[in-house]
Amino acid sequence: MTMETAAAPRRARPFALPMALVRPVVSLGLLFGLWEIAARTGTISAFLFPPPTAILASLWVSAGPNGDPPFGTLLDIALSLYRLLAGVGLALVLGSLIGLAIGLTRWGRAIFKPIISAIMPIPTLAWTPILLLVFGIDNRTTITVVFIAASFEIIYNVVTGIEMMTRKTYWVAASMGASRIQTLRYVIVPGILPYLITGLKLGVGYAWRALIAAEMLAASSHGLGFMIYDAQEYMDMKSIYGGILTISVLGLLIERGVVGALEKRTIEKWGVNVER
């Protein structure tokens, strides 16, 4: 009997919700539900921990035409995303090139490896005071912070991708008569792509966190980090939580949505495992 049950295929319930969606909704719903009740009943301070519905309402207003300034939160989001995109884009280009130089050339290893080993242990934010003096309160400061934060994972993963390639892979290309440039184009670049995407995923995560922190220190106006920092000055707790919520949702969207889509089109489609 038990054997029979085990072997029988599970009957698909026509209206079953995908469990992958149900679980996070239940767990987050529980957290926010309890918070809402606790704040409304006065169990916790409604000033320090405003109820989630009030946070959402405040976010709705500040993102709309009646915000101060109008559409202020949308502007914050746009500026933060712009800085992230510019910095990560820069890191993607330069990081890949440096990674290729380290992975493929002796001079690249000799020049870049010691420099990177020396810089890597430094928290990205430690650069902010210097950048502020160099660039002033300017987008360039935050973009550079993002660039530094995203670069290391990209470089490291590109180098790993090259190291994972066996000599036989190069031999196959060589026996087809591939030149150095053709080997780069047909073998090395597509071969490291899954690693580059893994590096990008991790790099974007670090960069997003670094950006928010840098915006608190270095942005004269706007950006989600600045939004939170500024709200603290006015003890506007709802805006602080609204900013944090936005950061969380956007971070999730970027990591799962953008990078996840890239992964689906490459790593998953090819059935490649990325070893780190």
């Binding site: 036989k168 026996s175 073998v187 597509p190 792509l193 090819w270 490649v272």
Partner: peptide
């Protein structure tokens, strides 16, 4: 002196290009 297309190679481990 070097590998060339007049000699094709097949390895035990196949060595296919997974992205193609």
């Amino acid at each position: 002196v070097k590998p060339g297309p007049n000699r094709g190679i097949v390895f035990q481990e196949f060595v296919l290009f997974p992205w193609r």
